[in-house]
Amino acid sequence: MTQEQRLAAAEGLTEVLARTTGTAEHPTRLARATATATGELKSLDLHPNALAQGPDAVGRLVVETARLATDAAVQTSYNELAKSLGDSMAMAVEAFAGPPPLNTAPAVDTSAPRPPVTPPVAQRQPGEQGWSGAQQRAATPSAPPWAGQRPNRPAPRPEPAETDDDDYFADPFRGQRR
């Protein structure tokens, strides 16, 4: 890939981030969101049972689901970048944009001392309203598109701290110079 191609591709980064979306469902299955890699919420569906959790829980549910959807979109963007630019460019982007969320973000912060959002009761009455979306979407695939990847990149090999010794010992006249 030539320098010009890489520059053109880098300029497309913004467009990739704004265009790529990710969809995630909250682990409790009470909310589903689609967001761009820049965190813009494109769609949001709340399960009717979610509202029974109370206003605070609904707020947290939306925040957590939006973050999961954004993380999915960022991961998809990285995958798309790596495909179109090559691994070296994707790593350069990663160097100043941060690692992909798969390597850094905890799934959902469960350590905070707040009441958990409890999953809905499984059985549904006949005729009860389901998802609030206008049309039922196809179920999201169980495995995300990056599931086959290695979970962690191996740590880069450390650079030798001092390389001057090599030059010194390569000089046959070492020690005879002043």
Binding site: T38, G39, L46, P55, V58, G59, V62
Partner: peptide, 28 residues
């Protein structure tokens, strides 16, 4: 925050009466 998903979503108790679709649209 700039360039990120919502950090905090606060919903009034009365807003729960909007129903899931209308509330989700308002949050959007």
């Amino acid at each position: 925050v700039p360039g990120g998903p919502p950090q905090e979503v606060r919903i009034s108790p009365a807003a729960l009466n909007m129903g899931p679709r209308a509330l989700a649209d308002e949050i959007l």
